[in-house]
């Protein structure tokens, strides 16, 4: 359908400051790669009003590496993520999430900032960002603040971002790189496992998404972080499930963790899937991942 564009005002600044000035005035919304916004516009569901197009703001682009963090500008696209050599090594779940988001054309245009701000519980990058302990940098005329991403989503499509704030950067704290599976099971080191279940194998919105990061010391789970998509009103940071793993030998903790996860997810029925299926699959896939790590198998990826 054709939207009536005369009711939309757009500015296209190049300077970050100018963006912040507009947002500070109130009543302005952000336009980045447009892969969510333009769909909404086409469905005549985008509220008419004022939009700041940030696509040309260079300060929001680029991936920088320091000793203790990798910092990605909000306009970092899925294609940028996949191409980055260090992300491939240290943050493979994010790279995998990017590879599995939409298809090539969407990956060239969709941004991390947009994916986070859009706050869909089905979004693919959030589970990985949650499992990696990402930090968001929000800018506004009032200043810059940093937030643990795990605290960002507060309810369905509700976040801690104020209307005058822009998501400027996503920061990934660098930790040990994930280890390859070893025979007899990983006893020491970090293991990452990412899963996305969609209705088809490409260009699918997740029915269940899962990012699991485990840090093992002598077969005991020293730390665990689990992010999940499409199983709650928000991208789920599964704290209870992680707690059920922490401090226990992995092999002994699997069933407790799986049970905790079954309680922690609160999926719904919609046109894409059923609550029952989502819960069952989320649980199956988590069990499978944990069992594989514990047995030293590469988990067999789902079809």
């Amino acid at each position: 359908m054709r939207a009536d564009l005369s009711r939309f005002e757009v500015v296209r600044p190049r300077a970050l400051d100018e963006v912040l000035v507009r947002l500070g005035e109130g009543g302005w919304s952000v336009l980045a790669g447009g892969t969510d916004l333009m769909v909404t516009l086409g469905a005549l569901a985008l509220p008419p009003g004022r939009y700041v197009d940030v696509w040309r703001v260079d300060a929001l682009r680029g991936i920088t590496v320091t000793d203790d963090a990798i910092t990605m500008g909000a306009l970092t696209t899925y294609a940028d993520v996949q191409r980055h050599p260090l992300l491939q090594v240290e943050f493979p779940m994010l790279v995998e999430a990017a590879r599995r988001s939409g298809a090539a054309a969407i990956q060239n245009r969709g941004t991390l900032g947009g994916n986070i701000a859009n706050a869909s519980p089905a979004a693919d990058s959030p589970p990985a960002l949650l499992a990696y302990g990402a930090v968001l940098e929000l800018h506004s005329r009032a200043g810059t603040r940093r937030l643990a991403y795990a605290d960002f989503h507060t309810g369905y499509k509700q976040t801690l971002r104020r209307g005058d704030e822009l998501i400027a950067r996503v920061i990934l704290p660098r930790r040990a790189a994930a280890a390859a599976p070893v025979a007899g099971g990983v006893r020491d080191g970090v293991v990452d496992a990412y899963r996305k279940i969609g209705t088809r194998k490409a260009q699918a919105i997740a029915k269940v998404g899962l990012a699991v990061r485990l840090e093992l010391q002598g077969g005991v789970v020293a730390d665990a972080a689990i992010g999940a998509a499409s199983v709650a009103p928000v991208p789920l940071f599964a704290r209870t499930t992680a707690a059920a793993l922490r401090g226990r030998p992995l092999a002994d903790a699997i069933e407790a963790a799986v049970a905790a996860f079954g309680d922690e997810v609160t999926p719904i029925d919609d046109v894409r899937s059923s609550a029952r299926y989502r819960r069952q699959v989320a649980v199956n896939v988590l069990r499978d991942v944990l069992a594989a790590v514990s047995a030293g198998r590469t988990p067999v990826d789902s079809l």
């Binding site: 699959v281 199956n284 896939v285 789902s302 079809l303």
Partner: peptide, 11 residues
């Protein structure tokens, strides 16, 4: 075909 019992997907 291959069936994945975890997810009931069919390829």
């Amino acid at each position: 075909v291959t069936v994945d019992l975890r997810t009931a997907e069919v390829r």
